[in-house]
Write a protein that binds this DNA or RNA. Structure first.
Lengths: 140, 140
DNA sequence: ATTCTTATTGAAACTAAGTGCATCTATAAA
DNA sequence: TTTATAGATGCACTTAGTTTCAATAAGAAT
């Protein structure tokens, strides 16, 4: 039960205002296991402070994304999921047949990241990717 | 100016009906340079046959996607883009700063595809990916 | 403590995409 | 050629996310 300090500090360092809405959105993101959706964040915040608007949640997520503090990932269930960057990087294999999700270390994509940087000077954001396809069972 | 036969043949082989709506949607996808959006397909079809509904476009795209006949890619402009698989595979580097899009051969991701198959038995669909990040200019 | 400035918020409208259901029609069977 | 039927469509509605704009309030300056 920590105080979501990491992201808050970075926001205030960079001159962004620390509104109560933002504080509550941040703790919703930093508590829990990550992979939270905008609606879930909204539900958590609204439970304590019913005046929040969901567009504030979306706007805060957009900001955190732009500052590189959270990653946004489409896991194929129709809503985007958010993960605090401070909690570590990983990827997912998502089976489009049965819906199974397998976690994947960060290292699988590092060679790609390196090639893109070397050959194109492109700094690829490959911190939390969902790779779709068919799992071992479904393609047997 | 070919007759969008490839996809039509595959649909009818597999027992799907060849409705006039589908035929018009298919030629919209197969003519042109690919990377067409659902709205653009709808506009093209509606110009000839104003009774089509856009949900038919979405449903047809869903079908073609499921059958592996088109790829769906988010190039970051708020609408998904579709590309006929028969026209070849490639990827895109999308700069989240300036919006520049650089094309990329298929080969960059083949090693990843191989590793996922070998180590997880996972058949990854990596035929038309958009990789977001910062281009050489924007990260100078 | 009060005032000021501008970032942030809430409300509502809007967009892209997906869904449920009654109707219609492409295709196969008679 | 006509009929039957399951697949496909149109329409209305829902959902996730974005945008506009007037009102509010965080944080700086006084």
């Amino acid at each position: 039960m920590k105080k979501s300090g990491e992201i808050i500090n970075k926001l205030s360092e960079q001159g962004y205002r620390l509104t109560p809405q933002r504080m509550m959105i941040l703790s919703a993101i930093e508590d829990g296991e990550g992979h939270i959706s905008a609606e879930e964040i909204y539900a958590q915040v609204a439970a304590k402070y019913s005046r929040v608007n969901i567009s504030t949640v979306y706007r805060t997520l957009e900001l955190l994304k732009r500052l590189g503090l959270v990653t946004e990932t489409d896991l194929g269930d129709g809503r985007l999921r958010y993960h605090p960057v401070g909690k570590g990087h990983h990827h997912h294999l998502v089976c489009t047949e049965c819906g199974a999700i397998v976690d994947l270390g960060e290292s699988v994509l590092s060679p790609v990241k390196d090639v893109l940087l070397r050959e194109y000077g492109f700094i690829a954001d490959l911190r939390h990717l969902a790779i779709f396809g068919r799992c071992a069972n479904c393609s047997k």
